[in-house]
Amino acid sequence: MHRQRVIIRTLGLATAVALAATACGPQKAESAGSSSSAPSAPTADASPSASPSTDAKPGDASPSASPSASASTSPSASVKPSPTVKQVMANGDDSEQVRELQARLKQLKLMTVAPTGFYGSKTTAAVKAFQSKNGLTATGSVDEPTWKKIQAATKKPTADELRPPVVNEADAPDPRCMEGRVMCISKESRTLAWMIDGKVVSTMDVRFGSENTPTREGVFNVGWKAKDWTSTIYHTPMPYAMFFSGGQAVHYSADFAARGYNGASHGCVNVRDKGKLSALFDQVKVGDKVVVYW
């Protein structure tokens, strides 16, 4: 009994220390405990037992097999497979080629947002729309015929089309952002607008925590800053960190820069443009307001 009390007290102390520590490492695209976790995936793809090969496995053919059984399998065996169409891009990809695709889709007015390089739901919907209009199978993925038709219907994107000054379109600022020095952060448009006395000075793309570790909403203040910081819980770098609510901070994320929105933070506001955030870090002062809203 005495030993159990010691263990409980020790766990309580450890929990308190963990809550007080700074966090915010990147999460994987699928969180632990998700219904789409790795162990379940193979069962969906494990099709040999249901495939036609069960009718005659290699080495299993025997003289006793009846002629009628072999005849029943002959029609399907005689059908020649259609040529494989090479896949070029698909949902989940993150590359410069995807950025070019998005710029071309914007030329066709099938996308309204600026290119990000990440192939997500909006890009999938735009590709499906193009395929439907052009007599292609509307899969939402870009195969060679789709890519060739998109290229033929558009011009090569310029540097400004590929990387416009603002990637996500910022919302109208929340009324609480209209006075003083404010990092105005919209969860809906996924943007951070640095504002001084109601005027937008700069904007940048951001992402947030997952459902299990959400970024808190409300009005806060920058409590402290650290140009070079590493999470004491997740041991991941948090450059240009500006803490506004406990362990939650605005900071640069290499993971966000690499994978886009195919992931999430542990509650922090991730910024993917390191150059823009570096300039913002130099301007923001401890005590400046932070507004996080939908």
Rank of each mutant, 00 (worst) to 15 (best):
D197I: 03
A257Y: 11
M195G: 01
S278Y: 00
K227N: 12
A264P: 00
Q131H: 11
K289M: 12
D160M: 08
D143F: 01
S210D: 14
V206R: 07
L162D: 00
S74A: 15
D282G: 06
N221T: 15
D171G: 05
P48V: 03
N168H: 13
I8W: 03
A61I: 15
C268I: 03
G33N: 06
P81L: 07
R163A: 11
N134W: 02
F118I: 02
K106Q: 12
T84I: 09
F130D: 07
S34K: 13
S186H: 03
M204C: 11
T154Y: 07
N134H: 12
K122L: 13
N212W: 09
A14Q: 06
F281I: 05
A16P: 00
V167D: 06
D205E: 15
F208K: 00
S265M: 10
E144R: 15
S189M: 02
R104S: 04
A125W: 00
A29T: 07
T10W: 04
G120V: 08
D197F: 08
F256Q: 00
K80D: 13
A61L: 15
Q151K: 14
G12L: 10
Q87V: 01
T191N: 05
T158Y: 01
V142Y: 01
V167S: 08
T236S: 12
V290E: 00
S62N: 13
P115W: 02
S40Q: 14
G267S: 12
K285N: 05
Y234L: 05
A279M: 08
L162N: 01
A258G: 04
D174M: 06
R216S: 15
N168Y: 14
M195R: 14
A257D: 12
P239L: 00
Q151R: 10
S36N: 14
K276Y: 00
P48N: 11
T54E: 14
K149S: 06
L192S: 00
E179L: 12
C24A: 09
C268W: 02
S186G: 05
I196V: 13
A138W: 00
V200K: 07
M204W: 01
R272P: 04
A18N: 06
T139K: 03
P175A: 06
W147L: 03
T73K: 08
S62C: 10
V200Q: 03
G135T: 03
A44N: 03
A126E: 08
A69T: 13
G59Q: 11
S76D: 08
